[in-house]
């Protein structure tokens, strides 16, 4: 079986939360294409297996933060697949998308310390988002958290961001930067400076 996570991390994970670790390991196997089956069908199978055991999905979801605390992510792609795994686990009853409530809970676990605007993002989604969160929106948020600064520098309004992210940025601009551009520029610099010392977690681009 493929060992997608740091080996020390995996041993520890098996000890702390065996079910979650196993599921994650299988997930990585399917996604990375190491097993022969078609990934899409493989994932559907895995999903069905998990759902067949009552309470399993919720149990794994509950153990996400434990799993995360022992796993070590050596590079971006490892964290990527873990992040996608969280979406996979958050889906209920074979649904394609996840509810806002579930997404918020999951984000608060998985993006803590990795997305500086996490609190504001969650507040925004809680208040304004009424539809479920699609996989695309889920994945794009991770990309957004990586390429956008605290001050939203690096965001391109003409880019391909999902509408929910565009709306979030607009909301942020409206609330936190109603003043003119020059002072906004100044504050931008000062914020970047303040946070330059922040210790970056592995798997984070900057």
């Amino acid at each position: 079986m493929a060992r997608p996570m740091g080996s020390s991390g995996f041993e520890a994970a098996l000890a702390v939360c065996p079910a979650a670790a196993q599921a994650y390991s299988k997930y990585c196997g399917i996604v990375s294409g190491c097993t022969n089956a078609n990934p899409r069908e493989g994932l559907a199978d895995l999903s069905r297996t998990i759902d067949n055991m009552e309470g399993m999905r919720d149990g794994i979801f509950g153990d996400i933060h434990k799993l995360m605390s022992v796993l070590e992510f050596d590079d971006v792609s490892q964290f990527n697949s873990f992040y996608d795994f969280v979406f996979f686990i958050s889906r209920e009853n074979g649904q394609k998308n996840i509810t806002v409530q579930k997404a918020l809970a999951a984000w608060r676990i998985v993006l803590v310390g990795r997305f500086r605007l996490l609190d504001r993002w969650c507040n925004f989604v809680e208040k304004y988002q009424r539809h479920n969160i699609s996989e695309d929106a889920w994945q794009q948020l991770l990309a957004f958290s990586r390429c956008v600064n605290e001050d939203l520098e690096g965001y391109d309004p003409k880019g391909a961001w999902p509408v929910i992210i565009d709306d979030f940025v607009e909301h942020m601009h409206r609330i936190y930067r109603p003043s003119d551009c020059s002072s906004a520029m100044e504050s931008q610099c000062s914020i970047s400076n303040t946070f330059r010392g922040l210790n970056l977690l592995p798997g984070s681009k900057r």
């Binding site: 699609s134 695309d136 929106a137 994945q139 990309a143 003409k158 391909a160 961001w161 509408v163 565009d166």
Partner: peptide, 28 residues
């Protein structure tokens, strides 16, 4: 509005007519 177009693009991604390129999310 561009936002409305984006919504349709997202809906098509959701319905699996399109996907984002794995290496570059700006490409469909």
């Amino acid at each position: 509005k561009p936002a409305d177009m984006k919504k349709r693009i997202e809906s098509l991604i959701d319905r699996e007519y399109l996907e984002r390129d794995r290496s570059n999310p700006q490409i469909y």
